[in-house]
Design a protein around this nucleic acid. Structure first.
Lengths: 167, 167
DNA sequence: GAAAACTTTCAGAATATTTTGAAAATTCAA
DNA sequence: TTGAATTTTCAAAATATTCTGAAAGTTTTC
């Protein structure tokens, strides 16, 4: 297999996998492209490489920055903005964990708390309902704590101490 | 707040949150409805409650069964099929973890392995590319192991031993 | 084995999301 | 300033996903 072919396959596959867990295909492909690119790329280069429109590139670059997965770079003597990915994959993974906590788990925890507050009577039916809400709260909290633990850990710690737990 | 109102809010919110992490809204709402329902429900009751079509109900019930989150039940003397949710939320959460490993992490691991195999030459460019692929493989493997650990654990163990790690 | 009761399928409709591309806004050099 | 270079926005188009409802399929009863 040609190296370029393998890279293209990687970029393509990455985009496909992403859609499966609710992430925009183009965003993943841009991320993959930047992950593999030794040098920073500008919007035109990304447009050309992935054959997508300027607006699409712009929007997804901003999205990727909001996830903390890529950085904007201003090259001396260049007007255009250049972008490069966080190359430390462990760091990137921790960043994704952090964002998913914030975007997915926090809303669950908040909503469950609000719903709990709203149910004031103490009928058996209410108790039963509150049990479900409480349980979901506990599970979400557990997931949140686990992710926090993992995302705050250093890679070195993860690959040594924590990994031993899986033997 | 009326109890029914709280339940409706729960079902509605659950559906909205789900879309945020790539899960069908109706599927989540059916799941929420069954979670809160003390008795098993049949397709007609779900249609009525959530105001959705028969086809939609049927498809999402099957989907929920494939996730192992609900069960089909045949009530004596009844022709219709009834459905009820796994009420042990910890068990349900472990089930989701198991499925996500299978559906999301396994494909990443497989793809990265295949891509690695495909790159045979040992130029510096290939080495650089393989580094990225290897790193992603390692991170996905770590996530897979962590999820395996957590999904195989018993609730009692989770809430006691493992939880202490977060103090 | 025929009819009734129920479930499943699936083509087309409805809805939601993503993408485009051109216009508007911004930035920067002269 | 001006205007060329660049980025951002956003309405409309393209695409993808979800939902409907009626027809086809299946199961059960008589």
């Amino acid at each position: 297999m040609e190296l370029q072919e393998a890279k293209d396959r990687f970029i393509h596959t990455w985009g496909t996998l992403a859609t499966q867990w609710g992430i925009n295909r183009t965003m993943s492909q841009i991320h993959a492209l930047l992950l593999l690119s030794p040098k920073s790329l500008n919007a035109d280069e990304i447009m050309e490489e992935l054959q997508i429109s300027r607006g699409n590139v712009n929007m997804n670059l901003r999205d990727l920055m909001s996830w903390g997965l890529i950085y904007k770079q201003l090259l001396p003597g260049e007007r255009k903005e250049y972008f490069h990915a966080e190359k430390d994959i462990w760091k990137a993974a921790r960043q994704i964990g952090r964002e998913r906590r914030r975007r997915e788990l926090s809303p669950i925890l908040e909503t469950m708390e609000e719903i709990k507050k709203g149910v004031s009577d103490n009928s058996p039916e209410s108790a039963e309902f509150l049990k479900v809400v409480d349980d979901i709260y506990a599970v979400a909290g557990f997931a949140d704590n686990t992710l926090e633990l993992v995302t705050k850990a250093e890679e070195s710690w993860l690959t040594s101490t924590f990994m031993k737990m899986f033997k």
